[in-house]
Amino acid sequence: MTNTATNLQMFETGSSTNFLDAVLAKHGSEPSALIPILQDIQENDRYLSQEAMDQVAHALDLSAATVYGVATFYAQFSLEPKGKYVVKVCDGTACHVRGSLPVYEALRKRVGLANGTFTTTNGRYTVETVSCLGACVLAPVITINDQVYGHLTVDAVNMIIDTLEREGEHDD
């Protein structure tokens, strides 16, 4: 349970001012720096909070609407916190014809996602589809925090999540 508590706390806090300053220093404050800045915040916080977007808008002298527009345009950004494990199920053509959707459904069921949601209530897993990971020969393929798993079956998915769950027990 401690794990969940820490996660939630982190979600609420969002980016520290120091972190934002460092990111701004790294990328500069030209309008073209907007996407790289948001990418760094997304990576650090696992989402873009409204405060973070406001601060970025202020620092780059852009309207809040412009920042929000960019944040909602690109699939990489999320306005809600993503889970500790981000599971990306490839639904490219090759994966699709070799059964990516049953894998996706099995994953959702295994981690207990309710209809219409993508992140578990304990903030542990986010399960989403991506259009193509470019690893078509491994179809169907998923990544969990950028670790690649190929030639997946429903059984394999359950085994992978079991392993993550066991690791989770250590954390607690």
Partner: peptide, 25 residues
């Protein structure tokens, strides 16, 4: 190197340019 942010349409030239400039693609 400019890293995309997940938008298929950015493969189109003028959308790609918009994205490099920091705008919606």
């Amino acid at each position: 190197v400019k890293e995309g942010a997940g938008a298929f349409v950015c493969g189109e030239e003028s959308a790609l340019i918009a994205s490099v400039e920091g705008r919606r693609g």
